[in-house]
């Protein structure tokens, strides 16, 4: 589904990604772990099409297409979803209008008729129950005045609405208490299907207690320095990142 080959990227001339290789197949959950500043969020941003960095080398193929040539919205239409580490507040844009536009743009891409207001609202209600999000949140502007936990839950709600093929969750666990964490993880697990995949980016092993990965990668200093099964996460938790630093 996703194939990253020797990906290098710089920000203001400084190399942040120094040759990433990663293969993700349908049905898989990959965890990417690593210390702060290792390039985790940059990788997520590259996949979603954020343009603050320059890609200097390498390729990313997604569903047989050159991902790097696509606009952020085209990527979204093809099922890429980025759960933001810091979801942005957009005053004045209502959640309903925002989601309705997003869902119908995706339907247009798939050649489907736009959802009627009634159908849309019904879907929205269902998904709200599904991810356990308070209905009053959707009556407000996008993320405006949401608490940290509400913002993250809102990301999972949007993920439920858009039913992505490849979900990239960028430190979705940061700033969450254990209850919120459970709700978020629960949402992710419920959305798991044999034909989709997720990349869970996290600093701590904590989230992986709830979302069980098939593969764990350790990103350090712009490179994936270790790849193994879920036991790697445990080992990291135990030994800390210094262990990796010393090994690499």
């Amino acid at each position: 589904m996703l194939s990253i080959k020797n990906l290098k990227a710089t920000i203001n001339g400084k190399e942040i990604l120094k040759g990433i290789n990663l293969e993700i197949k349908e049905g898989e959950v990959h965890a990417i772990m690593g210390p702060n500043g290792s390039g985790k969020s940059t990788l997520a941003a590259v996949l979603a099409g954020r343009n603050f960095m320059e890609i200097t080398e390498g390729s990313v193929t997604y569903m047989g297409k050159n991902l790097l040539e696509l606009s952020p919205e085209e990527r979204a239409h093809m099922g890429i979803f980025l759960g933001f580490q810091y979801p942005i507040e957009i005053p004045g844009v209502s959640m309903v209008n925002f989601m309705k536009t997003a869902v119908n743009e995706q339907r247009k891409y798939k050649g489907l008729e736009p959802l009627s207001s009634g159908d849309f609202l019904k879907t929205m209600r269902d998904k709200m129950t599904f991810v356990d999000i308070d209905s009053k949140l959707t009556g407000r502007s996008v993320n405006e005045g949401f608490s940290g936990g509400e913002k993250k839950r809102n990301e999972i709600f949007q993920m439920a609405m858009l039913e992505p093929k490849l979900a990239i969750l960028d430190e979705t666990d940061s700033g969450l208490d254990i209850d919120a964490l459970r709700i978020v993880a629960n949402g992710v697990n419920k959305l798991k299907r044999p034909d989709n995949a997720s990349i869970v980016i996290t600093h701590y092993q904590r989230l992986l207690d709830y979302i069980v990965p098939d593969v764990v990668h350790v990103l350090y200093n712009g490179r994936i320095v270790k790849t193994a099964g879920k036991e790697l996460a445990m080992e990291l938790e135990e030994k800390g990142y210094d262990w990796i630093k010393n090994e690499s």
Partner: peptide, 12 residues
Amino acid sequence: ALFYLRSRGIDN
């Protein structure tokens, strides 16, 4: 904000 909207599939 623009990127956020686009990442949800809303065109530019």
